[in-house]
Design a protein around this nucleic acid. Structure first.
Lengths: 221, 221
DNA sequence: ATAATAATTTAGGCTGCCCTAAATATATTA
DNA sequence: TAATATATTTAGGGCAGCCTAAATTATTAT
C-alpha cells in the first residue's frame, strides 16, 4: 500500500504533465508546498519503486504503474468532490480541500459504492473528468477562455479547483461548468477580457480567465 | 491539530476506561497493535501535551482536554459508520474498518452535515451511542447478555464492532440492535447460553455473548 | 566563451512513531 | 520473605518525510 505522500506526488506529477509542462523539481516543490530538496529525495524513492522515471536535472515522468496509482487517486478525489457537493450540499469551494484528505483513505469498495450512488458520473463539480475504474476517461477537447475571439461563444467546461477564493469569485460571475459565455472584447496581449454570461457583462483579468476552460465553441451575432 | 496516532490512543484509552478497566500499558498495546515500549513512549508525549495524566507503572487517565478529543473522534467514527451503512448500504461488518480510516480526516463541518443528513441519530449500526457536538450523550443502562436469567427476555442494545467475522455471525443469529431475545437456558459458570431470537433457538458461548449488551429486560412466560 | 543567475542536488539533521533487547519495577506464589 | 513471573520502562535504532545550508549543474546574458 502507498503512503499519502507518495500518492500526492504521483497525482501532482500527473497533473503537471497533463498540462504538457515539463515536470521539474521546482514545479513540484511549488505545487506541493515543500522545498526542492524534499522533492529530489522523494523522486529518488519513487524511482526506486518504479513509479516514475527520474533523470537528475532533467525532470520526471510517470511509469505505467505510477500513472495507474495517480489515476486511482484522481478518481477518488473527483468522486468525493461530487459526492460532497451533490449528496451533502457542500459549497464547491470547500469540496477540494475535504476531498484531498479523504481521497487517500478511501477503499476501492467505497469508491465504487459512491460511484454507483451518483450514477457513474463523468465529471466533478469543477468540470474535471472522472476516470472509470479501469483508468479510462475522455478528455473533451477544450481551450482556455482567453483563447476565444471577440464575438465567439462557448460553454464552460472546467475550472481550476485549487483556490477557494477564486472559486467563489467564479461562482459569483456565473462561470461554472455548463454555463454559456460569450466574449464581447479581448485586449491584445493578455489584457482584461470582457465576457457576457447570460445577461451580465464582466471584465476578467488573465489570472482568472486562464483557469477557465471552454468547449462547444461557435461564432454568432 | 492532532495526528492520527494521538487521536487513536486517546480514543482507545477512552474505550478501555469506559469498560471500567484500569488503562494499562499492556491493554493499550494489545488494542492498538503496537509493542508496550511504543505505548510508554506515546503516553509520555500525551502527558506532555496535557491530554492524559500518566503515572509510570500505574496506568493512565484522560484529562478534560484528552477526553474532549476522544469524544470528537468517537463521534466522527460512529457517524461515519452509520452513514456508510445507511446511505451507502455497506455491510455492518465492514463499516468499522472504513470508518476508522476516515474518522481522522473528517472536518467538523462535514461531520455536522452528515449528522444533519441522518437526522441527528443517537446510535450507530452496532448500537453504540453517538455523542452530540458538545460531547454529551446518554449511555442507556444495559448489561451483558450472559447476565440474564433463564426465562427473561430483553432487547439487544449494542454489540462490539471490532471483529467482522463475529459481526457476520451475530447477524446470522439475529443478534443486532433492536432485536428481541429470550433466554431459554444458562449453564452455571460461563457455559453455553441458549437463547431464542424470534422463532429460532441458538446456543452461544461466552466469547460471543459477552460482546452483546441488552436493555429493556423483563421476565415472562 | 565567460560570467552571472537560476535550478537542482548533496550533506546533514530533525521529528514522529515504530521496533528489539535489556534493565527495572511490581505482583504472585512458595 | 524470598524467588519467580509478569508488567513496564529505558536504551538504542530504523524509516518516512520534512527542513536548511552548501555544493553542483544548467541556463542566460554579456
Amino acid at each position: 500500500m502507498q503512503t499519502q505522500a507518495v500518492e500526492d506526488y504521483l497525482k501532482t506529477i500527473y497533473d503537471i504533465q497533463r498540462g504538457k509542462e515539463k515536470v521539474s523539481t521546482t514545479a513540484l516543490s511549488e505545487r506541493m508546498g515543500v522545498t526542492p530538496p524534499s522533492v529530489t529525495g522523494m523522486l529518488k524513492k519513487l524511482a526506486d519503486m518504479h513509479l516514475v522515471v527520474y533523470t537528475p536535472y532533467q525532470g520526471v515522468t510517470l511509469t505505467e504503474a505510477g500513472q495507474k496509482i495517480a489515476l486511482e487517486v484522481i478518481r477518488h478525489h473527483r468522486l468525493i468532490e461530487l459526492f460532497l457537493a451533490e449528496a451533502l450540499g457542500m459549497p464547491w469551494d470547500q469540496v477540494h480541500a475535504e476531498a484531498h484528505k479523504i481521497e487517500h483513505v478511501l477503499s476501492e469498495d467505497l469508491a465504487d459504492r459512491i460511484d454507483a450512488m451518483l450514477g457513474h458520473p463523468t465529471s466533478d463539480p469543477h468540470g474535471a473528468p472522472i476516470p472509470a475504474q479501469d483508468g479510462s476517461f475522455d478528455h473533451p477537447h477544450c481551450v482556455r477562455l482567453t483563447e476565444l475571439e471577440s464575438g465567439q461563444s462557448a460553454v464552460v467546461a472546467e475550472v481550476s479547483d485549487h483556490d477557494p477564493a477564486l472559486l467563489r469569485y467564479l461562482g459569483e460571475l456565473g462561470l461554472y461548468p455548463q454555463a454559456e459565455v460569450s466574449v464581447l472584447a479581448l485586449a491584445p496581449f493578455g489584457g482584461p477580457l470582457t465576457i457576457r454570461v447570460e445577461d451580465t457583462e464582466h471584465v476578467l483579468g488573465q489570472v482568472v480567465a486562464k483557469h477557465v476552460f471552454v468547449s462547444n465553441i461557435h461564432s454568432k451575432e
